[in-house]
Each structure stands twice: as C-alpha cells, then as structure tokens.
C-alpha cells in the first residue's frame, strides 16, 4: 500500500505514514481485533485490551485532528468510530464470542434458531416463575439468591466457551456448542437484569 498523501510505501501495521506522518486509512479486510492491534482470538487480557484502547485513542481521536486536513479529519473520525466499536465488542466476553463466531462463518442468531433443548427451556420456565413470584412479593432474599445462581451459571458458560475456543482448531461441533452456550447465556443475563436492579443493562450482540 502507498500513502494517500505522499505516495510512499506504507505497511499494514502503520497507523501513520512513516515518511510524511499523515494518518492512513484502515487496511482493507481488517477486523475488529486488528483495530486494536490484536490477532484474532478469544483469549484477551482485559487490562491489555484497555491499555491498547487508550493508546489507540490517543493516536486516532478526532481531538488530535481538529486543525488537520479534511481527509485526515474524516479518516480520524472513521478509525475512531471503528476503534470504539471494536473495544465495545471485544471487552464483553460474550459479545466477543459472538463476533468471533460470525468471523468463523457461524451467525449465532441464525444458528441458535435451529437449536432445540426442551430440558433447558423447562428449567427456564421454572426459574422465571420463581422470579415472578419473588418480584411480586418483593422477596429480596430470594431475588438475591436467583441473581447469584444465574451469575454462577453465566460464569460456567463463560468457562465452557473459553475452553471450546481454546481447542487447537475448533471444529463444527465445538462451534455449535458455543452457539448453544451463548444462546443459553442470554436467558441468564435477562434473569440477572430482572432479579438485580443494580446490575448494568445487558449489552446486545
């Protein structure tokens, strides 16, 4: 690739042209991982992710380009928008998993439609009945128990997903297990949101 401004060669990792220091567009085909300088993968250290987000923000943010050329301002806006999207997606483990599945050709929403798990649904119905009753009676103790239980289940799901992604080359079966785990996590997220008014709102995927 060549710099749009001075035409000198620019590498795919170069945010700025090494010759003229002008901001470059994101290389074609880059995913959200590369927006943060990461290679594609589920295992991400949250502190490292946050540090990368801050470092990239310092480089790309429109505040640094208020006096720059129109083209650089536009690139800064585009790249920062993308960076924010990447950080939002990757910092949440389940959104990250859903995004990875999409990159691997499995749309978690579409795939989940074909899942049938009557046992799980039965359990959910019972749980929701308990939840409704506790909410009606403002039974804080039971609500707290339900929330804790759902959080434990979410933690177990997250562990399962991490284990499946850690397999050398997750096959069709492993990917479908992840789809199923993420679909189940959605139910527990809703339970937490309803049982614990102090929980932050669940993020869409």
């Amino acid at each position: 690739m060549n710099c749009w401004s001075c035409q000198k060669a620019v590498g795919p990792e170069d945010v700025f042209c090494p010759a003229c220091r002008v901001l470059q567009p994101e290389p074609p085909g880059a995913d959200l991982f590369s927006a943060l300088g990461l290679s594609r993968g589920y295992d991400i250290d949250p502190d490292d992710l946050e540090a990368r987000f801050r470092a990239r923000s310092r480089q790309l943010h429109p505040d640094r380009f208020a006096r720059a050329s129109a083209r650089e301002r536009r690139l800064s806006l585009e790249r920062t928008t993308r960076l924010n999207d990447a950080y939002r997606t990757l910092k949440d483990v389940r959104r990250r998993a859903a995004y990875l599945l999409k990159l691997l050709g499995k749309d978690p929403v579409v795939e989940a439609r074909t899942l049938h798990d009557p046992e799980f649904l039965e359990e959910q119905l019972e749980l929701r009945e308990m939840l409704a009753l506790a909410r009606e009676k403002s039974d804080q103790r039971t609500l707290a128990l339900i929330a804790t239980g759902a959080r434990d289940r979410l933690a177990a799901i997250d562990e399962e997903v991490a284990r499946l992604f850690a397999e050398a080359d997750p096959g069709e079966e492993a990917l479908l297990s992840i789809v199923s785990a993420l679909a189940r996590s959605r139910y527990f997220e809703n339970v937490v949101a309803e049982a614990d008014p102090t929980a932050p709102p669940a993020q869409p995927r």
């Binding site: 801050r54 923000s57 310092r58 943010h61 505040d63 006096r67």
Partner: peptide
C-alpha cells in the same frame, strides 16, 4: 483546556472520551 488542546492538534497529556 479542551479548546486549547484542539487548537494545538491535541495534547499528549489529555484526551476526553
């Protein structure tokens, strides 16, 4: 402070997100 930073093309020590 922010106006000054924008005017100077950003400050290395501050960034608002």
């Amino acid at each position: 402070v922010q106006a000054d930073a924008l005017d100077k093309g950003g400050r290395d020590d501050v960034l608002l997100l």
